[in-house]
């Protein structure tokens, strides 16, 4: 996994609440056995007409936001299914950060496994950033994981919380499985005791 440190760029505003995983990547694109290439269909049903042409006023189709690396979204982003295709699609499109007041749990976790940083901020902060984002390429937002800050264009800084372990993995591009396998001895000894206690498992 690529290391994540700082992202500074244009942010696309998506002020809708409850943007669900079916919107992020509709199910017809889940029939792949690969992790790559999903960016082409990110937000497919909002982004494209049925004939494949672009929906002109969809945010990521506007010239200012075509290369956006940050999304600022309404409450409860990523609710719905557990499909990791959602962060795969976002990442493949080039989104590295999603900012919202809240995220659905599974989506939130899935982001970290794919080098994407979901940032939770209070409503007032998200409102400021949303306004910034609406100014298109005139505004840049900076997200600094090390210092856990998001800076609006005028320099206003917002501090965000992130789990230490998740931060560590993201900063260093670490693979969870490798880390867990280092603890194989703990798992072995747990398993031994456990199967004595609950042999039917």
């Amino acid at each position: 996994m690529e290391k994540f440190t700082t992202v500074s760029g244009v942010a696309a505003p998506m002020p809708l609440v409850n943007i669900d995983t079916d919107m992020i990547i509709p199910k017809q694109f889940l029939k792949t056995i690969k992790r790559t290439g999903l960016g082409a269909n990110l937000f497919d049903e909002m982004r494209f007409n049925r004939d494949g042409t672009e929906v002109e006023d969809f945010v990521l189709n506007k010239p200012a936001y075509r290369d956006a690396e940050i999304l600022v979204a309404g409450d409860n982003f990523g609710c719905g299914s557990s499909r990791e295709h959602a962060p795969w699609a976002l990442g493949d499109f080039g989104i590295k950060v999603v900012i919202s007041t809240s995220f659905a749990d599974i989506f939130y976790n899935n982001c970290f496994k794919n080098g994407i940083l979901p940032v939770v901020l209070p409503k007032e902060a998200v409102d400021v950033l949303m306004e910034d984002a609406e100014r298109g390429s005139n505004a840049r937002i900076t997200v600094d994981l090390e210092n856990q800050t998001v800076s609006a264009t005028d320099g206003t800084e917002f501090k965000f919380e992130v789990d230490e372990f998740k931060k560590h993995c993201l900063l260093n591009g670490l693979d969870d499985i490798g880390l867990t396998l280092q603890k194989a001895a703990s798992i072995d000894s747990f398993e031994a005791g456990y199967s004595a206690r609950a042999p039917w498992v």
Partner: peptide, 10 residues
Amino acid sequence: HGIGTSEVEH
């Protein structure tokens, strides 16, 4: 728990 594909692998 519902989990993502990376967690499935894990």
